[in-house]
């Protein structure tokens, strides 16, 4: 197992290398001269050149890339072009807000999704099953920002059970997490259901019943364990989707997160902040999938653990 983890970690290196390269090139393949943008409208050529010099934009491209990577490793992303504050400071707290939002939403989708999927599978073709699958279809088809707005309308504006915006207290967390986690719960429910149905017809389930095992134990100890193997993969991909979805959810609920920051700064072409944010989100996604790989191995004993 240890060897496997080390190997997977080493395999991350080229992936992360690719990510930094893309993020770096982002600045250079988007139209417009960054120095001119930064210098402001109507700046003289001299000012623009000065700005370019200060930012190192006149260096050869590969040197610029090397500086970029070296700085990124030290978590130094320069200063924001808009506010002049260090990018690390700008992102810092907002990053954790987004991670919290994504993690809570994932927990919600996994929890609800698996339970609903199991119930659906065990009571196949029953009223409950049809009901759950219909709900899942709704959850899947509903855009998260719209669901967010609806939730806000009912529970914050009309019923006034929770505040409509912000982040921090439990009451503020509930609505955004539901808005963001619903689609994931729906996908996981459908996945769990079909996976469970397949597993339930396996020979070893019959063996478990022939031992005199209680039906509940058959379902949870014997069937679910096996059924989760494909579901785990989906959870990893789901996390990436959540990071993307967070942008809209944060905007709807006025949460000061990374997503909202990125949207803000794209408008003003604040490249250091955008680059740093994209880099961090991409890295996070890569690591979550690394964790998924490991849990996949833990669940699936058939893969040899060399």
């Amino acid at each position: 197992m240890f060897k496997f983890i080390v190997r997977r970690l080493l395999q991350l290196i080229p992936v992360l290398f690719g990510v930094t390269l893309l993020v770096f090139l982002m600045l250079h393949i988007t139209p417009g001269n960054p120095a001119a943008i930064l210098a402001g409208e109507g700046a003289s050529q001299e000012t623009i050149d000065n700005v370019a010099n200060r930012l190192g934009l006149n260096e050869p491209l590969h040197m610029q890339y090397i500086y970029f990577v070296m700085d990124a490793i030290r978590l130094d992303f320069g200063t924001s072009w808009r506010t002049g504050m260090p990018v690390a400071d700008e992102i810092g707290s907002r990053f954790w807000v987004t991670v919290e939002l994504a993690v809570y939403s994932t927990i919600l989708s996994v929890f609800i999704g698996i339970i609903a999927g199991v119930i659906s599978a065990v009571r196949r073709y029953s009223f409950t099953d049809v009901g759950i699958m219909l709900l899942a279809l709704f959850g899947l088809s509903m855009p998260n920002f719209w669901l967010g707005l609806m939730l806000m309308q009912w529970f914050a504006v009309q019923l006034m059970w929770v505040p409509a915006s912000g982040w921090g207290s439990a009451s503020q967390v509930i609505l955004p997490v539901i808005a963001l986690g619903t689609a994931g719960a729906a996908i996981i429910a459908r996945m769990t259901r079909s996976s469970m149905l397949e597993v339930i017809s396996q020979d070893y389930i019959r063996t478990a019943r022939a031992k005199g095992t209680k039906e509940r134990v058959v379902i949870y100890r014997h069937a679910l364990r096996n059924a989760l193997i494909p579901v785990v993969t989906v959870v990893g991909l789901q996390f990436g989707y959540l990071l993307g979805g967070a942008v809209l959810t944060e905007t709807v609920f006025a949460i000061n997160g990374l997503g909202r920051l990125v949207v803000d700064r794209i408008a003003s072409r604040d490249f250091p902040v955008i680059q740093a944010s994209v880099l961090i989100i991409a890295t996070l996604f890569v690591f979550v999938n690394f964790l998924v790989d490991i849990s996949y191995r833990l669940l699936n004993k058939r893969i040899d653990l060399d």
Binding site: Y204, N226, N300
Partner: peptide
Amino acid sequence: FQEPMTSLNPV
């Protein structure tokens, strides 16, 4: 049962 390959729980 007939299929020893599939009659035991793999996990």
